[in-house]
């Protein structure tokens, strides 16, 4: 067990080290693709930490991400940059706690609907506020380079994986698996189900907010409609489910092909991205209900069964 963990750790470290060399290629295209992949990896993996075991589908990613971007956008005038991502993380966690407390006691449908509207709610409030103050968008002017953003995201990904690994081995992780199977049993076994769910939702909210804060300098100009784009929430759900949420590395398996597909489609058919989202949802529900991970593990199990009978 420990040896297997050690090997996985070494492998992860190696992959991260190789990935960290990406900016050295000097290709702006690959770097920007790398940033997308790193960003989606953090977002989907942290999303799956919560939604995987509980089956609550959160569409709040865009809301957390937007709050994070605005934290950097507003805060950069008063504070040094390095202080901002942690602040964004705290804000994201607080917001997640509030949303979670209001909705996680109820059925999953209410949660989906609420999170779906959350980004829109925050967006409308910010626009209203800007109308009053007469300000439109915010310029985020920093000396941070693309490569630095990439490295930060990579570090964040490592952090999220470490957190996911630790949670998976903790009482909290076990509690969430039980909740995902049968909430009634969980409660009667002595698990505070509401607290466990809110705690993990806070982790995923914080991660998304930090990603927003880290990426803000890249946008240069932040306005509500770009910071709170609802597309982001859906992309994250699709990539995570496409990969599969049963394993920590599952979402990554969805992120890489989908990012390439998305880039290709939005480059050549920019109006068809919505259609792509729709088709992906249908593919997930009807063809890949357990994602690529389920597909891989199913095949492996069948092969093993065949060997056993041979």
């Amino acid at each position: 067990m420990i040896r297997a963990d050690g090997r996985t750790l070494a492998l992860v470290a190696l992959v991260l080290a190789v990935a960290a060399c990406l900016p050295l290629t000097g290709s702006a295209y690959w770097l920007s693709l790398g940033i997308s992949i790193a960003m989606y990896t953090v977002l989907t993996t942290s999303w799956a930490l919560f939604s995987g075991p509980t089956h609550y589908i959160s569409l709040a990613t865009a809301a957390f991400f937007g709050v994070g971007s605005y934290t950097t956008g507003i805060g950069i005038e008063y504070l040094p940059y390095w202080a901002l991502p942690p602040i964004a993380g705290v804000l994201g966690a607080v917001m997640a706690a509030l949303v979670g407390l209001a909705t996680l006691r109820l059925s999953g449908v209410y949660f989906v609907i609420f999170t779906l509207g959350l980004a829109e709610l925050v967006r409308q409030v910010i626009i209203w506020f800007q109308n009053i103050s007469g300000q439109k968008g915010i310029y985020v002017l920093t000396k941070i380079t693309e490569a630095q953003i990439f490295w930060q995201l990579l570090g964040l990904a490592a952090l999220v994986y470490a957190a996911g690994w630790a949670i998976g081995r903790s009482r909290l992780g076990f509690a969430l698996r039980i909740i995902g199977d049968d909430e009634e049993v969980a409660r009667h076994s002595g698990i505070n189900t509401a607290r466990a769910k809110v705690a993990l939702f806070m982790v995923s909210g914080a991660a998304a907010a930090v990603v927003g804060a880290v990426l803000a300098p890249r946008f240069v100009y932040i306005e509500p409609s770009t910071a709170f784009t609802p597309m982001l929430s859906f992309q994250v759900v699709i990539m995570a489910l496409l990969g599969g949420t049963g394993r920590l590395w599952g979402p990554l398996v969805g992120v890489i092909p989908f990012t390439f597909l998305w880039e290709a489609i939005s480059a050549s058919f920019p109006n068809q991205t919505t259609l792509l989202l729709g088709v992906s949802f249908l593919v997930i529900v009807y063809l890949l209900p357990r994602g690529f991970v389920g597909l891989i593990e199913g095949t492996r199990r069948r092969m093993r069964a065949r060997e056993a009978f041979a």
Binding site: R177, I178, D181, D182, E184
Partner: peptide, 12 residues
Amino acid sequence: RTFQLVRLLPSM
């Protein structure tokens, strides 16, 4: 307690 209709955790 146990439940009138057995409740196990099916994924485990």
